[in-house]
Amino acid sequence: MSKDDPGLVVTATLEWNGGSAARRRAGADLDLYAFFVPGSLVTPQGKRPNKTDDVVYYRQLGSLSVAPYMALDGDSRVPGRETVTIRRPDLQGYVLLCAYSAVENGTGSFKSYGARAVVTDGRGSTVTVPLFNNRNLSYWVAIALLDFTVPSGVQIRHVEKYSGNHVEARPVLYSSGNFRMSTGKVEFKTR
């Protein structure tokens, strides 16, 4: 497998069963986000990186046939799954996969939703992340960082970092592949 392999397709799936009946009644809307840096905007080592606001999520589903060559399959507002598919590894730089717990859910940890993420390149490299954090007031989790700058095509790194209590600000991805939690735009999903 190499970066120039047109058949390389990465999929990332956020799955959740809603946890308990009480949790499902209170709300169990999770959202998968794919923050990204196109390959043409990756900052060379030693240069100052830039923040990116580029993201595929429920309000911006993306496209597999034109840039950004990644797309989310839709918005599940109830327990289920959301999947983002990423193509054209030769045009990708970095992708940070995150999950957001809609504020309308009230308090509840990612663990209480029965959530997990599965990221695979379809070629034998798969990362499964059960989201076991018990903090009821963490609205964001950065799950995995996909590095498309490596010669082999993609490196999937498990990062699993959670936002602070009551922090609704998104994570921020930089053009160097680094990221920071709780420093981006404030998210507030309403029906």
Rank of each mutant, 00 (worst) to 15 (best):
L32I: 05
P49W: 09
W16M: 10
K47F: 14
W16K: 06
D31A: 03
V56F: 00
K51H: 06
Y69E: 10
L32M: 15
P89H: 07
R88G: 02
E82Y: 05
R77V: 07
D75T: 05
P79E: 05
A22L: 14
Q45V: 12
V42Q: 06
G39Y: 10
A34I: 10
L41S: 15
D53P: 00
R48F: 12
G62T: 01
R23E: 13
N17W: 02
I86G: 00
G27K: 13
G46V: 03
G46L: 04
V78H: 13
R87L: 05
R81M: 12
P49L: 08
G80I: 08
Q92T: 00
N17V: 08
A22Y: 13
G80S: 12
R24F: 04
T52N: 03
R77I: 12
A22F: 10
A22S: 15
L72K: 12
M70D: 06
N50G: 12
G80N: 08
R24T: 07
L30G: 12
R48N: 11
A71F: 01
A28D: 14
L61Y: 10
D53V: 09
E82N: 07
S40H: 03
L32V: 11
M70P: 06
L91I: 00
S65K: 14
P89Y: 11
G19I: 05
T52M: 02
G74W: 08
N50A: 13
V84P: 01
R81F: 14
K47P: 02
L61N: 05
L64K: 10
I86K: 00
P44I: 04
G62D: 00
S76V: 13
N17G: 10
D73R: 07
G19E: 08
A34E: 04
Y69V: 08
D31K: 01
Y58A: 01
V56L: 06
R59V: 04
A21W: 09
V42E: 01
R24V: 15
P68K: 02
G39H: 11
L32D: 01
L61E: 04
Y33M: 11
A34T: 03
V84I: 15
S40W: 01
T52A: 03
T83L: 00
P79N: 07
A71C: 03
